[in-house]
Design a protein around this nucleic acid. Structure first.
Lengths: 242, 242
DNA sequence: ATTCGAATGTAACGGCTTGTAACAGCAAAG
DNA sequence: CTTTGCTGTTACAAGCCGTTACATTCGAAT
């Protein structure tokens, strides 16, 4: 799978340069110029590593990194100013995994990205799942910790890994149209090729597990030309946390 | 689809210049000379990006941008005066995505518009839909969250993506004549070509779903030469929000 | 009141998008 | 090595949307 890198920098030339360079070297790239866009990208895509400018205007890279570390072990490489040793120390203290000083060689950054990814490879991001609250919707209850789906009548439904990942993607983005690329990124870490029907097949299988009426699905609805939407309210049962 | 740009500037030469230039480069353009017209345009059209003059007389571009950010993540490019660095900083702080200093090259603005749109591409604007209240009219109830339409007799009517978008457009602009261009913009992100009957077909299909008498439709009425009007009171059931 | 042209209504059709059965390949378990 | 389950691909079917064509309605002109 091609790792998905998120580049967060207000300098559009840096975003553009890194976009082209990293794609050329086999990565998928998203870009954000500010904290808000960064948060949305982290929410809607499955990002494998963040390249974050420490001197980001507004909230600042330090605060954004700190905030990210509250919920995630996602690797972060900080872009810092040359010679600013204090900044680097602070950056590493709030959880950055590495730093690269500006102006930087894209090749150096590439090497560090690969090194950090190699080191964190296989990381299944337990924080994202472990301790996660039970999700409830339309009488169903879905426990990510035990990977257990319970039907409204109490029957436990077993899910394959693919079905589980897809349901997690939907349940954590309810009432939003998710494109096939987003669903594939969130579940398989790749984008769809032309004529790729794999998500449609998986959605069909998950609908069957969720006992949907194929003619008129209620939970997972099709949005023609857009993708799929998990059309239900989802509640977090934080109180069942152990 | 052709992105829809809203140009907000009191200088009609700038509005005119940008209108011609941006259309030539594949955009649809609307223009506003003041805050009031800007608000109406934002309500009646599906705008993809706003170009906003920071020095707009009256309420001022800063306040308008701030107000826009209270409800929307719509990208904004500020037009600022050359050399006014304080203004730019303030502009970015109230949420502008980029800025261009006057006098500006239309080509530079075009490049920035494309860059910002590329960055925000795929943005499904969750604020517009998530947590949306149930809309009630003439005994019908329409829940945008579950995309479910319920008839006065309780029967659930399934809607296609196109029918859903059209009903949303009508239900969020009740008792107002909407032109075919507006309906197409709000539902498909494009304007009508000559002899374009697609909205009329969709209206016909939606009327059938809403059980209208074709000879004498009550909910969706035709305004000859003007478009269509959703002629009913629409209530927001905010209390059903979860 | 009549005529005419424009605007609108919608049936039918074609192309595109989506649903899914069936099958093949792969990986893991026994 | 064999068996089983899972996932993706292929093929066929169904639904959706836009275009076309024909019919109806309405408003303006006479």
């Amino acid at each position: 799978m091609e790792p998905h890198i998120l580049v967060v920098d207000d300098d559009r030339e840096i975003r553009s340069l890194l976009d082209r360079f990293l794609r050329k070297h086999g990565f998928r790239v998203s870009a954000a110029a500010d904290g808000q866009t960064m948060r949305r990208a982290l929410d809607e895509w499955k990002i494998d590593l963040v390249v974050l400018d420490l001197m980001l205007p507004g909230e600042g890279g330090i605060n954004l990194c700190r905030e990210l570390r509250e919920h995630s072990d996602l690797p972060v490489i900080m872009l810092t100013a040359l010679g600013e040793e204090t900044d680097r120390v602070v950056g590493l203290e709030v959880g950055a995994d590495d730093y690269v000083a500006k102006p930087f060689s894209p090749r150096e950054l590439l090497a560090r990205i690969r090194a950090v990814l190699r080191r964190t490879q296989g990381d299944s991001r337990p924080r994202a799942d472990s301790g996660q609250a039970v999700l409830r919707f339309s009488g169903w209850s879905f426990d990510p910790t035990s990977r257990q789906l319970r039907a409204p009548d109490g029957v436990v439904i077993s899910l394959s890994a693919g079905e589980y990942d897809l349901l997690m993607a939907f349940a954590t983005h309810p009432n939003r149209v998710l494109s096939r690329d987003q669903l594939l990124d969130l579940t398989r870490g790749r984008f769809a090729g032309p004529f790729d029907r794999s998500i449609d097949i998986q959605v069909s299988r998950l609908r069957r597990k969720l006992r949907e009426d194929p003619k008129n699905p209620k939970l997972i609805q099709t949005v023609r030309g857009g993708g799929y939407i998990f059309a239900t309210a989802v509640a977090n049962d934080a109180s069942t946390d152990t």
